[in-house]
Amino acid sequence: MSEGIDVGSPDEIEAGTARVVEPEDSGFVDPIAVFHTESGCFFALNDTCTHEEASLAEGWIEGDTVECPLHSSSFNLRTGKVLCLPATEDARTHKVAVEDGRVVLYPGVAADPARAAD
């Protein structure tokens, strides 16, 4: 599970948006959302909100948080921590890094919450 997956070049994911990596491409059981924040950082969380069926990649990305498009629960992109109801469970993080000019996702490898911005 520690094999990195090339998600694309950093400019292929517009800042303030996210790209979903499907299980058939990642080998991970759940879809993973790779977020590109306005400040240029990349983070990855399980794409499906921990509350109900909604894609966090389609949410409102602002600063280091994403707000679910369905019921507005917010999650910290660095830690996956749920920041407000109605979700009550944290989102699972995945390690993502920019390596040799490519965005590389490590499905199933938890993100290091202390890591510096890319």
Binding site: E58, G59, W60, P69, L70, S72
Partner: peptide
């Protein structure tokens, strides 16, 4: 108000 356009409401 919006139908199936939640980001519009967040904006």
């Amino acid at each position: 108000a919006a139908v199936d356009l939640p980001l519009l409401i967040r904006a």
